[in-house]
Simulated scan of single mutants.
Amino acid sequence: MKKFGLLVAGGIASVILLSTIGPMVGLLVSLLLLYFIFKQFLKAESTGGKIGLGIIGFIVLMASIHNAPAIIGVVAAYVLYLVYKKWNENKHTKIKEESDPFVNFEKQWNELNKY
């Protein structure tokens, strides 16, 4: 039953992630543009250049805000990562216990100490 819940959560998260790839790419591009515009704004010495870069930066900032659904896609990617970790958690712990010879010895030692 736990695997079924993880499967459903992973399926929903993957559908949301796939549907928000476009806004995620748009947000990435607009934030990169905004970063380079800001760096040029700090380097500009003329007032006209600063005003022009400020206007362009404002337009790109509005484009970044328009791609806000990309944040939902990032959350979906994180949920998908958590589902992946939980899915493989049981496999790793079982393999670790079976391959470690001292775990069996510790269990037997604890059983002997009970009496």
Score class of each variant (00 low, 15 high):
115 Y>E: 15
106 E>S: 13
105 F>S: 15
42 L>P: 06
25 V>W: 03
28 L>I: 03
37 I>Q: 03
3 K>L: 07
60 V>A: 01
46 S>R: 15
108 Q>S: 11
106 E>H: 12
3 K>T: 09
76 A>G: 03
22 G>F: 01
56 I>L: 12
28 L>F: 09
99 S>K: 13
9 A>C: 11
113 N>K: 11
44 A>I: 11
37 I>F: 04
44 A>Q: 09
96 K>S: 10
61 L>W: 11
106 E>G: 14
96 K>V: 13
93 T>Q: 12
68 A>T: 06
107 K>M: 10
61 L>Q: 05
54 G>V: 05
51 I>C: 11
90 N>K: 08
81 Y>H: 03
84 Y>F: 14
90 N>V: 07
2 K>H: 04
107 K>A: 06
101 P>A: 06
89 E>H: 11
67 N>T: 03
41 F>K: 10
27 L>S: 02
42 L>S: 08
21 I>N: 00
108 Q>K: 15
40 Q>P: 00
88 N>M: 09
114 K>H: 05
27 L>T: 01
38 F>D: 08
64 S>E: 06
74 V>W: 05
33 L>M: 15
87 W>I: 06
35 Y>L: 14
71 I>A: 13
43 K>R: 09
97 E>A: 12
26 G>I: 03
76 A>D: 00
92 H>Q: 08
93 T>F: 05
13 A>Q: 00
84 Y>C: 06
55 I>R: 08
81 Y>K: 01
72 I>S: 14
80 L>G: 15
58 F>H: 00
80 L>Y: 04
85 K>T: 15
88 N>T: 15
72 I>D: 07
38 F>T: 14
61 L>I: 09
37 I>C: 05
43 K>L: 12
57 G>M: 02
38 F>P: 04
115 Y>T: 13
18 L>R: 00
78 Y>T: 15
112 L>D: 09
85 K>A: 10
62 M>Y: 14
83 V>L: 04
20 T>G: 00
13 A>P: 00
95 I>H: 09
37 I>E: 05
109 W>D: 07
94 K>N: 03
91 K>L: 15
51 I>S: 12
105 F>C: 08
36 F>S: 10
52 G>I: 04
30 S>C: 03
16 I>T: 03
47 T>E: 12
9 A>H: 11
106 E>P: 07
72 I>T: 11
19 S>F: 00
